Simulated assay, not measured.
Amino acid sequence: MLTLSACGNREARGDYPAANGNNCLPDVSLIDQHGAAVSLASLKGKPVLIDFIYTSCASTCPMLTAKMAAIAHQLGPALGADVTIVSISLDPEHDTPAELAKYAKSHDADGPGWIFLTGPPAKIDQVLALFNLRRTRESNGSITHSIEAFLLAPDGHQIRQYSALDVSPAAVVEDVDRARNKG
């Protein structure tokens, strides 16, 4: 459930105040698209924009990744230097590091500062729980999931939540810039 504020018309853009006070970058290690272990806690220190996808999704995940790619493009050299994008697999049973690397390359998402993560299903579920999310596998193999994205402050706490297919890349970049300037 989202909590909406009454400030301006931001909600119409799919951009909401964070409704979750959890530390979303705990000391949990996952595996990136290059096969390296990455502790989520190691990402603290700069804003992190995070979403959840899986590589065999033929519907919303490619659209979500395209939206994140547009945001990455607008961030320019700040991506990697001042902000990180993290896409976590919802299908760790199938999304190996090699599959994530292939997906990233095919979606123009393989530049510096954008990390794709997978890991044991229990760890993925642990991370999803921090965001008050869960994944459900349907009988056809697809995964029902939220298409939310989240902006985390340098301390790992959520500061914005997005209806990722509705929000404009410019609105997200504005939020990232504000978070960078506070950090």
Rank of each mutant, 00 (worst) to 15 (best):
G111K: 14
T136F: 04
T144E: 12
L165H: 01
A153Q: 15
A104E: 05
R13G: 02
G183T: 04
A98D: 13
E11Q: 10
R178F: 10
H73T: 13
V38G: 03
L130H: 00
L133W: 09
D175C: 03
D110A: 15
H145A: 07
G76V: 12
S146R: 12
V48H: 03
C57I: 01
E99C: 03
D166R: 06
L40C: 06
I159H: 01
D82A: 14
T144G: 15
G156I: 05
G21P: 03
S168V: 00
L30T: 00
P62R: 08
N20S: 07
T96Y: 02
D95N: 01
M68K: 03
T60M: 07
K46E: 07
A70M: 08
S59D: 15
C61D: 08
S106N: 15
D91N: 06
D155H: 07
F131H: 09
N23C: 00
V86S: 07
T65I: 02
S29H: 08
Q74P: 10
G76K: 10
P169M: 00
C24A: 14
C24G: 05
T60P: 02
I85E: 15
H94D: 10
D95C: 01
D108M: 06
A58V: 12
G119Y: 03
A70K: 12
S59N: 08
P112N: 09
H107G: 03
P77Y: 10
K44L: 12
I143E: 04
C7L: 13
L40T: 02
D166K: 08
E138R: 10
G76R: 07
T3Q: 15
C7V: 14
A41E: 09
A149R: 01
L117I: 04
S106G: 14
Y162K: 05
R178I: 12
V167G: 11
R135C: 13
L117K: 06
G183H: 08
I53F: 09
F150W: 08
Y103W: 11
R10D: 14
D155E: 15
S59H: 01
N22T: 06
F150G: 02
A153L: 13
K182E: 14
S56Y: 05
S29M: 08
L64W: 02
C61L: 02
I115P: 00
C24Y: 06
L4P: 02
V48D: 04
G80R: 12
P154H: 02
S5H: 14
G183C: 05
V48P: 05
V173G: 12
G76P: 06
T65V: 13
T55H: 05
N132L: 10
E148L: 10
E93W: 00
P62Y: 01
L128Q: 08
D82M: 04
T118N: 11
D32I: 07
G45E: 03
A81N: 15
L4R: 07
E138P: 02
L25Q: 07
V48K: 05
A66I: 01
S29L: 00
T96N: 07
G113Q: 14
A58R: 15
